[in-house]
């Protein structure tokens, strides 16, 4: 089943020197349960492409089809609703809310969805990433690896169809990074979640089913 399809998407932004093309006429599709890596040098447009695929941003030209729905026909709230239903995120800088404890961070998407078993599900998710004992800790009381595991629990707690991971190990040491990657792929396998992984790491990319290489906004 086709989960994401990109049709000739282009993203331009304005700059003092004139229009700047960050993503240039990119087309591809992704299937359910597939793990796809997007690689390329810094400034190649990887994160922008991920934002376009997840409906966080809109392309200047072309269209993105997500779960059979053309994102360009939806407004921002429509895209948000689609994300709430189908998408999970893991970021390079974790993006945990510093004023919330670990469990409160995991609870966030569940509360938004109005899940009645939110607390139990959040506790289970933290147990799965090995942080059950530290659920009441604030992000500043956790190590980088622990923070990323909380972010993983938050991403998976709603059982998303697609997981977008933007350089998930970029801020972690090799050993901790490897543990996070294992968890990511384990979720990908067990829940048949489509994994879209943006990374610099060729070795990590090679573990995915497919690698999309981007350079100066173009797919090679």
């Amino acid at each position: 089943m086709q989960v994401i399809e990109s049709r000739h998407i282009t993203k331009q932004v304005s700059s003092p020197e004139g229009p700047l093309t960050i993503v240039n006429d990119v087309s591809f599709s992704m299937m359910r349960g597939e793990a796809v890596a997007i690689v390329g040098p810094s400034g190649a447009g990887k994160s922008t492409l991920l934002a376009l695929l997840a409906g966080l941003d809109v392309p200047t030209a072309g269209s993105v089809w997500f779960m059979g729905q053309d994102l360009s026909t939806l407004d921002e709230d429509g895209r948000a609703a689609l994300r709430a239903q189908h998408v999970g995120f893991v970021f390079q800088s974790f993006h945990l809310l510093p004023s919330l404890t670990a469990i409160e961070n995991v609870l966030l998407p569940l509360e938004l969805a109005g899940d009645r078993n939110a607390r139990t599900l959040a506790q289970e998710a933290l147990k799965e990433v090995g942080l059950y004992e530290r659920m009441s800790h604030y992000p500043r009381q956790l190590s980088g690896g622990e923070q990323q595991r909380v972010a993983l629990a938050r991403a998976f707690v709603c059982k998303p169809d697609v997981l977008f991971a933007d350089e998930p190990t970029g801020n972690l040491d090799t050993v901790t990074g490897a543990r996070i990657i294992e968890l990511l792929f384990a979720f990908n396998r067990s829940a048949q979640t489509t994994l879209v992984l943006v990374t610099h790491d060729r070795e990590l990319a090679s573990r995915c089913h497919r690698v999309l290489e981007l350079d100066a906004g173009r797919l090679l």
Partner: peptide, 16 residues
Amino acid sequence: LDFAALLKCVGASQRF
């Protein structure tokens, strides 16, 4: 700002 961006990311509407 980041809180709002994150909420949107995980599916919150503007109205919400």
